[in-house]
Each structure stands twice: as structure tokens, then as C-alpha cells.
Amino acid sequence: MSKKLLSALFGASLAALAMSPAAFAADQKINEFHADMGGGCETCHKDGAPSSDGVYEFQQCQSCHGPLADMDAVHKPHDGKLQCNDCHKVHDEVVGQRPTCEGCHDDGRTAEKILGK
């Protein structure tokens, strides 16, 4: 089976599970959720160990979630400037938790203001 097909199937499975409230425990960490998808630490890390620069993990994020340039208004301006793990602390955050703009920006930006929600 091709890598693209496997990635598409994995992404579709992830999306279906993410839409189901029963798919994860209320306090499940993001890394645990991804590992439970069937690959353990290797789901995100080459040989199960973090890379020194985070590039491999960033590529893994994009293989399922797509590139930042194709995402919403919050993600697009960060394309080429940040990697996913710069904002998303998957070993610390629980599923559904979102990083805040204030973590880097002190000018009053919020995702709600940017996205109009």
C-alpha cells in the first residue's frame, strides 16, 4: 500500500475519532491520543525518539493534518516561520486544548478575534 494512501487512511481515521467525544478520555494528552492510533511513539518520532531539531516530527504532523499554508487564518501566517511543536506541546496539552496567541503575541491578538468566532 502506498505511503500516500496509508497517510490518507490514517488522517481519515484520526478525523473520525476526533469528532467522537468518546474517542478519548477527557484528560488524555495529545501524544497519548496519537500513540493510541496504532503506532506508539513511532507515530510521530523516527525510531520512537525525538529528533534534535523537530523537523521529522513537523513533517509527521503535516502528513496527517496538512501544511500550515492550507489551514485556517491562525495557522497560515505562521507557515515557514514556526513548526507545530512551537505552539502545540503535545506531551503537556490534553486533547482539545488550544495554545493561546498571548503565548507569543502581547498585542491583544486571540484566535477568536482572528477567526471572528
Rank of each mutant, 00 (worst) to 15 (best):
M1D: 14
S2Q: 15
L6H: 06
L6Y: 06
F10I: 11
A12E: 13
A12V: 15
L14H: 08
L14Q: 08
A15G: 05
A15E: 06
A18I: 11
M19H: 08
A23C: 12
F24W: 10
A25Y: 11
I30V: 15
N31A: 12
E32C: 02
F33D: 00
F33Y: 09
A35W: 03
D36E: 14
M37D: 04
G39N: 01
G40Y: 06
C41I: 09
T43M: 05
H45P: 07
H45C: 10
K46Y: 12
G48R: 02
P50L: 02
P50I: 01
S51Y: 00
S52G: 12
V55L: 04
V55D: 03
E57D: 03
Q59I: 05
C61P: 00
S63T: 09
S63Q: 06
C64Q: 04
C64S: 06
H65L: 04
H65K: 05
H65Q: 05
P67L: 11
L68R: 00
M71Q: 12
M71V: 03
D72G: 12
A73T: 14
V74S: 00
H75P: 00
K76I: 10
K76V: 12
H78P: 01
L82Q: 03
Q83N: 10
C84S: 11
D86I: 02
C87V: 02
C87Y: 01
C87W: 01
H88G: 00
K89A: 03
K89T: 03
K89E: 05
H91F: 13
E93H: 15
E93V: 13
E93Q: 15
E93Y: 15
V94P: 00
Q97H: 15
T100V: 11
T100Q: 08
C101V: 07
C101R: 06
C101L: 10
E102N: 12
G103D: 14
G103N: 15
H105Y: 10
R109V: 08
T110S: 05
A111P: 02
A111Q: 05
A111E: 04
L115E: 07
L115N: 09
G116M: 04
K117Y: 10
